[in-house]
Design a protein around this nucleic acid. Structure first.
Length: 708
DNA sequence: GCGATCAGGT
DNA sequence: CACACCTGATCGC
């Protein structure tokens, strides 16, 4: 929760995301997004009175935020005081003190924040320097680098202060699976269930808050099933959303809510009251979006966890992970940083300890660290501007950082993050991560990687010491940031290079996803891919892995064969768990553009596509589905449920408890991966030779690892 | 009666 | 473990 007081020290005449107390005197207001904890005081009588007595006081926000805000009658009184600013359009604003007539000009730019519909960051530029207020944000690694307006020319702007969303600024949140990975996990789960019969429905147990819309949109587009919601009038002017939600309860995906919706669900009733259709009882599963995080060294992305007979948790995060925050901040490299949020167990000091090293005002104090990786050192370009001599990190970090698209950033970025992260961050985070492990792992909902951490030292080392190399040589998992680095699929990256704008955001999302998906979907754009994944898992795996494998496959395997180390992990998982279930040829690569179109077509496909039998390995599910259709309803329920459990979640070995599953996963991902991997991919001699050559050149440890 | 705050819940 | 929100109790105006 934001504990930001509303004002930045550089421009105290404006108030952002807080509207009470001192903020009542602000000359201008800014709202980053429509979540209640950022709207404190926004409808208070005191502020209302202030508005009534003023012609000048305005509230600035994105068009979408304006729309959402004014949908609620409680905020209608703002109507004539809101100014919607287009995203990524610098705008001059005069801050006038109405009593003294004093005036100050400021330029503000809204940057997409990826947190919820309409969410933005505010970039203020004026006499007192450039200030970035992030609001709440979720940006993948490298996204800051793709924001044109954070740059001036080819360099990052000189930013004085960043007011930062530090919700997950704690090493224990090191990695949160990317939006795309999470989405795919959910998609496959929903697909596998809803394709059994039309009476198999999914309830998305979402909080009452904006931010799930892109999930609805993507599910609807992919599956051709609209999402039932309680209300949709706030989207009346947002066709991209509106089209995918419905108030018609006769749909297979629900995100409706009810004050006691958990009770409803327990009574096999949807929050909207539906229990059956055409006299046939519904078979309902619930999926609760939850934040799941992973330790720094394990990128295993088990994005779905089964928590009960028919309940699941799915990974979903509105906020950037620890590593994403650090990536973001180290790219911006402001003079100062101020946390907007205290992470739960954390203190301001602890957060600052993490953030300080990424800021200029503190970096000058750091000693250059010995780095065994020579290439990473050559960053020390002479900077052009503001830093002094001995400030060697400063310079490179701040000014010598080329803007990302197309250019090669390996010198600035990997080293900048690498140095501080490797030096301090990782070590410290390792420690605290361990500390948190004990309480995390017993918990059903969150995965922990400790066990494998402890065991597989080589992996640890690998990732820990070579995180820079990893970034240079291969795509970072779940991030679109690959575009930041030279030598990696720059082509396809350019398709991803768009900065996420809100209106484009959800679409973009999809595009990005598809380009990442290219491996996953081309030949199995219909239910086939997932179905075959789910079925036949001869008792080894659950849907969780399936989804994540699926996503990791698509996410990490790139044309260049430069898949990251983590995809390896996932590959291993698949191999060990579902070898015979999977036909990986269906993941073979395709051009990203092709995939985009496939996905788009899929989106518009009628229901029949998802009810169709989908291939040999799906026979189980299909049989179930067919059986269900032909049998009487009473039996249907049983058969359907049982069948799908087999298909989806057959966890076998009685290890139905999620945390047991987790443990086993960790094991399979660590202890046993080496033996298993060759099964999936036997290194070809010439490939090996090539790899060795690269190794000799000092650059390809990662690949070597990957292949081994 | 309203709002602010807190506790408790999802 | 979280978030963002809701409800209900309590207090103050």
């Amino acid at each position: 929760m934001s504990r930001f007081g509303g004002r930045v020290r550089e421009y105290p005449a404006v108030s952002i995301d807080r509207f009470d107390r001192d903020n009542l005197r602000a000359r201008a207001y800014f709202l980053s997004h429509c979540h209640k904890d950022h709207m404190k005081g926004l409808r208070a009588p005191a502020l209302k009175r202030r508005l009534e007595g003023s012609l000048k006081v305005k509230l600035y926000c994105s068009p979408v935020t304006k729309e959402l805000l004014l949908t609620s009658w409680k905020y209608k009184f703002w109507e004539h005081h809101i100014v919607a600013l287009e995203v990524e359009t610098p705008t001059q604003i005069s801050l006038v003190d109405e009593t003294s007539g004093e005036k100050e000009d400021i330029e503000v730019t809204l940057l997409p924040a990826g947190h919820c519909p309409g969410s933005v960051m505010f970039l203020f530029e004026g006499e007192n320097g450039t200030v970035l207020y992030t609001g709440d944000f979720r940006l993948a690694k490298g996204e800051a680098a793709r924001m044109e307006l954070l740059h001036s020319g080819t360099r990052v702007k000189d930013i004085q202060s960043v007011y930062l969303d530090t919700t997950f600024c704690d090493p224990k949140f090191y990695h949160i699976p990317s939006r795309e990975e999470c989405l795919k996990g959910i998609l496959e789960l929903v697909r596998s269930w809803t394709s059994l019969t039309r009476y198999h429905v999914v309830w998305l147990n979402c909080k009452a808050a904006y931010g799930y819309e892109y999930l609805f949109i993507n599910l609807s587009e992919e599956l051709g099933i609209k999402v039932h919601v309680n209300k949709l009038d706030m989207f009346r002017n947002m066709p991209e959303i509106l089209y995918h939600v419905t108030t018609d309860r006769r749909t297979q995906i629900h995100a409706c809510r009810h004050p006691r919706d958990d009770d409803c669900f327990r009574g096999n009733r949807l929050p909207c009251g539906m229990t059956c259709q055409n006299g046939t009882p519904l078979h309902i599963i619930s999926i609760k979006p939850s934040t799941m995080w992973f330790g720094e060294r394990i990128k295993k992305t088990n994005v779905i966890v089964r928590t009960g007979e028919s309940t699941y948790r799915a990974c979903f995060s509105f906020h950037s992970s620890y590593s994403e925050i650090k990536d973001f901040l180290s790219y911006i490299c402001p003079v100062n940083v101020y946390p907007n949020v205290l992470p739960v167990g954390g203190t301001e000091d602890k957060v600052m300890e993490i953030l300080k090293p990424l800021c200029r005002s503190y970096r000058r104090n750091l000693e250059p660290r010995y780095k065994p990786l020579g290439t990473l050192k050559r960053v020390h370009k002479r900077d052009l501007s503001d830093t002094d001599e001995d400030d060697l990190f400063d310079s490179e970090f701040t000014s010598a950082r080329p803007k990302i698209p197309k250019q090669q950033r390996e010198e600035s970025k990997p080293s900048s993050t690498g140095k501080s992260e490797n030096a301090e961050g990782n070590i410290e985070s390792t420690e605290s991560h361990k500390a948190t492990t004990t309480y995390t792992s017993p918990n059903v909902d969150f995965m922990d990687c400790e066990e494998s951490n402890d065991d597989d030292d080589d992996d640890d080392e690998e990732e820990e010491s070579e995180i820079n190399i990893l970034q240079v040589l291969s795509p970072v998992p779940g991030a679109t940031s690959t575009s930041s680095f030279s030598g990696v699929t720059s082509d396809q990256q350019e398709t991803n290079a768009d900065v996420p704008r809100w209106d484009a955001f959800f679409k973009c999302n999809k595009l990005e996803e598809s380009s990442e998906n290219e491996d996953a979907f081309p030949s199995s754009a219909d239910a086939g891919g997932s179905q075959s994944l789910f079925s036949d898992s001869d008792g080894v795996s659950d849907s969780t892995h399936i989804s994540s494998q699926n996503s990791s496959q698509s996410t990490h395997i790139s044309e260049q064969g430069s898949q990251g180390w983590d995809s390896q992990m996932d590959t291993v998982l698949i191999t060990s768990q579902e070898r015979n279930a999977l036909d990986f040829s269906c993941f073979s690569k395709g051009g990203s553009r092709a995939v985009v179109s496939v996905l788009q077509e899929t989106g518009s496909q009628p229901d029949s596509s998802r009810l169709k039998p989908v291939g040999p390995t799906t026979s189980c599910a299909d049989d179930v589905a067919c059986d269900l259709k032909s049998k009487d309803c009473g039996k249907d329920g049983e058969a359907g449920t049982a069948g799908v459990q087999d298909v989806l979640v057959e966890v076998s070995n009685s290890s139905r408890t999620p945390d047991l599953e987790l443990r086993r996963d960790s094991q399979s991902s660590s202890d046993f991966e080496i033996p298993l991997t060759p099964d999936a991919e036997v290194p070809q001699p010439d490939k090996l030779r090539c790899l060795y050559k690269k190794l000799a050149a000092g650059e390809s440890i990662l690949r070597e690892k990957k292949v081994s």
